[in-house]
Design a protein around this nucleic acid. Structure first.
Lengths: 62, 62
DNA sequence: TTAATGTGTCAACTATATATGACAACAAAC
DNA sequence: GTTTGTTGTCATATATAGTTGACACATTAA
């Protein structure tokens, strides 16, 4: 589980807009949001920046 | 850049011990510490747990 | 109705994270 | 002066992250 979808919607972005903002394919965002796989650190950092937040907020769920 | 080496030494662990604690090869730890590549989120989370810290501390360097 | 837009998913491909095995070089210990 | 542990690095191999193109199914607007 992660909070990518929550923060994406908070910013009013579609999967496609977030994907192009971050330089990946739309499917990649979709798979991450649905926990279908395991993104790279570089992509996680890109997502955190694009969504105005940080790694812990998006991916560190204790 | 990341703080994996710093926190590994803080815990008195060798690359090998950290690698086996986290379930990867020693070379993988070595490459991450020397910024030779881009680990997966799952591995980053494993490292954070093994080193008693969190994602932001290890990988969110602003 | 038709046209957009957003999402979920599939198949096939390419790029790269990670594994395995090995070697050199150094240090500390014996 | 040779063992033992640690690190850096190489080369080859495999698993999987991420791409591209496409389709179905909604919802909303014209």
């Amino acid at each position: 589980m992660n909070r990518v979808k929550e923060y994406r919607l908070k910013q009013g972005l579609s999967q496609l807009k977030l994907a192009t903002a971050v330089g990946v394919a739309r499917q990649t965002i979709n798979l991450i949001e649905n926990d279908k796989y395991n993104p790279s650190l570089k992509l996680c950092i890109g997502l955190a920046h694009a969504l105005g937040t940080d790694l812990n907020t998006l991916f560190w769920l204790e």
